[in-house]
């Protein structure tokens, strides 16, 4: 991939609302070139979506999130992908990763409350044929996600005017 696209991705990752005009100025490129590159990134599904990072704990929403370690036996011919798909198609599942190490899939599940997540694990996840075992860890507090720190921090300690 060309360098321009990588730089674009970095700048959009910081702030997805940056306009093509602003990006063109920052990268010293014609605006049309930037629009074209973004179009290509979107078509190639490299830019998958422009989403918002939300700190839900500051809202009245009381949803809970769990990370679940899942051990499975891979399916002949399709490896882990088929089971991963059966898991990620559930809307409660927010992310699924294939892992190296002591377990195979790491599944992030979100529910309205503890009970909802627990029943998802016992009724949907565990019964899947090739799932051997699950280990559920509830998230108590999110400090940082996707490189973004959630805590309110006074980051700029600089004097307002200095030589």
């Amino acid at each position: 991939m060309d360098e321009l696209k990588l730089k674009l991705l970095e700048l959009l990752k910081e702030d997805a609302r940056r306009s093509p005009e602003l990006l063109a100025t920052m990268l010293d490129q014609p605006e049309e070139r930037i629009r074209q590159a973004i179009r290509e990134l979107e078509e190639d599904h490299i830019i998958v979506k422009y989403a918002t990072v939300v700190n839900w704990s500051k809202t009245t929403d009381e949803k809970v999130t769990a990370l679940i370690e899942v051990q499975i036996t891979p399916e002949r011919g399709r490896g882990f992908d088929a089971i991963a798909e059966r898991i990620y198609l559930h809307p409660q599942v927010k992310s699924v990763y294939l892992m190296s190490g002591a377990y195979d899939l790491l599944v992030e599940v979100e529910g309205k409350n503890l009970k909802e997540v627990a029943s998802f694990v016992s009724e949907k996840l565990s019964p899947i044929d090739r799932v051997l075992s699950t280990k559920t860890h509830f998230i108590l507090k999110k400090y940082k996600q996707d490189g973004i720190i959630f805590e309110d921090r006074e980051d700029d300690h600089r004097l307002q005017v200095s030589p």
């Binding site: 600089r158 004097l159 307002q160 005017v161 200095s162 030589p163």
Partner: peptide, 10 residues
């Protein structure tokens, strides 16, 4: 205010 008067890195 927005300060453009700062003589150090952000």
């Amino acid at each position: 205010i927005i300060s453009l008067g700062v003589g150090e890195p952000d």
